[in-house]
Amino acid sequence: MIIDWYTVIFQIINFLILVFLLRYFLYGPIVRAMDRREQKIVQREEEAAARKQEAEKEAQAYRRKKEELQQQEEEIWEKAYATAEEEKRELLDEARREVDETKHRWEDAFNREKETFIFELRRRIGQQACSIARRCLQDLADSHLEALVWDLFLKKIDKLSEDGQSALQEGLAKDEHKLVLRSAFEAPDEKLEQLKLKLQEILPDFKEDLTLAAKTDPSLVCGLEVDAGGYRIAWSVGSYLEDIEEQILKELEQTAHMEHAEEVSDRGKTGN
């Protein structure tokens, strides 16, 4: 077999054409497509990496936020515990204070009750003592004592001051010249006449039409009382007894006040 140069040249040309065709219609497009895909994959990988990085950043941020929130939560809890503890202490203190106050109030009330009771007891004892004295005087009263009381009463009218006289006149004018005599025992007529004459002496304006009405009142212990339109002239042991009773009660009150003041100062010293 000899070399046929036409065929050789044809085959060289054919092969070169084939190389050209495959280069531009197979190799090139396929390689470009592969490169494009590779680039896309790389791009997607880069995007995925970037997103992953972003996600990691966000996750880190969330983690940080979560930690901050946990820290805040702990702080809030601690604060709440502290506040609750403080409140508990305050409430306990308040409760203790209230108990103490209630106790003091109760003690005060008890003491007041006690003082009131003691005061009342003392007052009653005083009254009882006066009442016993009054009863004793009533029991002891007789005609001689009555005569002495009348004398004393008539002297009192005789020595009536000018103010008393004018007040008596005003009372008579108000009560239609009517006088009421109240006595612990029945007044004898002669004593009534003496009283009338005495009054006419000191009240000459009412000499003609002065009327005197006598009434018996056992509450006036060994006493006499003239009433003219609300103005009174009286003398009785009862009034003395009332004065004594008044004095006793005054004394009792003063003693109670002093005791209370002493108690308050004692409490101030002990701090309660």
Partner: peptide, 26 residues
């Protein structure tokens, strides 16, 4: 002198087939 032989024609057929296949794929 032989100018176009069956070798050349077969080569052309192969070239056409390869080109057609390339075009069809790409």
């Amino acid at each position: 002198v032989p100018f176009i032989t069956n070798t050349v024609t077969t080569t052309w057929i192969i070239m056409i087939v390869m080109f057609a296949a390339s075009m069809s794929v790409t």
